[in-house]
Each structure stands twice: as structure tokens, then as C-alpha cells.
Amino acid sequence: MTKEKLSKRDQATEIIQLFREGDSDGAMRLFEKYGFRKEFIRFTMKSGINKEDARDLVQEFTIDKLYMQSDSIKDIEFARTWMYRVLRNMVIDKGRVLKKNREIPFDEDRDQSQAPKILEENQTRSGCVQEQLAKFREAEPKRAEVMGFIIDGLSPEEIGRIIGRPYGATREFMSQCRKKFKLFIEICNEIEE
């Protein structure tokens, strides 16, 4: 469990360390080698930003935050958490701009808090879960984001640092995520594999 998580943490720390030492070329090589570009673009796209904007945002993040502010990180062992927190804030800002410029269709103001109860014919269970996951992300973007962090191997403490909550409150939030998602996924239990 912890082997992969620790190594990801160490990779992020190594990159920040190189930036601090002034070896930006070396840092960028490791950034690509450890797959951070793909990971961050994926994270940004999952937050509802299109591919081109996500790429530009990660590029901006690399220059303005990773390179320029690497000296300001207090706990270097939490470098990965810092990266996610900063990127998440940038994504939220970008989301606000996009939302402001977007024209909202009439049918979008319906209440999405309730999961639909109708099943399609010939649907597999995994297909159903995927569909419900997409709906859950739309209805509960913050909870879906936290679930993503859990699956990516971040500990509750690290997630708390990213979303700005103390440890206990983060665990409580995670518990709510589970319960909320359970409501969405219940419908899929009716399908037999």
C-alpha cells in the first residue's frame, strides 16, 4: 500500500529539490519521467476543463508555481500535496472564468442531487457504475475529487492538506463521500453479472 504512495511522494520531493537547486532542466526531465504531466492534465480534465485548456493550465502551473514558488514550500516532504493544492486552486479559478463565459442551456438548471432510478436495457454492472460515477461527479464535484485522491493513493492527512481541512474533518468528509456514492451505485446492484 505504502510503497507506491511513498515513492510518488519522494518523486515530487525530488523534483522540487532540483528546482530549488536551480537545475530546472533536470527537474523537468523527472517531471516527464515520473508522469506528472499526464497526471496533472488528467486531474485538470476530470475537473471539467477541456484538453487544450488543461494543457495550458498545467504549463502555466509548471512555470509560475513549480519553478517560481518552489522556494516557498515549507514542508518539502509534502511537495506532492502542495502541488495538488496549488493546481486545484488554479483549476477552481479557471472553472470560475469558464463558468462566467459559458451560456447555460435551459435544461441544465434541473436538480442533479438525486440519482436517476431508470436502468437501460442490456447494461453491464461496470458500465452502470461508470455512468453513475459520471453523474456523481456532476452532482458532487468536491466529493468525487476526494474519491479520486483516495484512489490515487493519497492518505487522509495529505487529502486534508489539499482541501484545507483538519484530519478528523477530512475523514468525516470521506465517510460522507462513501455514503453519498452508495446512493448513486445502489441501482447497479440490481444488475446481475
Binding site: 461496470s126 457504475v129 461508470q130 460515477l133 484512489i151 456514492f181 451505485i185
Partner: peptide
């Protein structure tokens, strides 16, 4: 497990 699989499939699709 279902959630994890769905999430990983989605990740792969995006990647």
C-alpha cells in the same frame, strides 16, 4: 472495487 475499476478505466480513457 467497482468504484476503483470504474475510476481507473476512466483515467485510462482520459490518458
Amino acid at each position: 472495487r467497482l468504484l476503483r475499476n470504474a475510476w481507473i478505466t476512466e483515467n485510462k480513457k482520459i490518458e
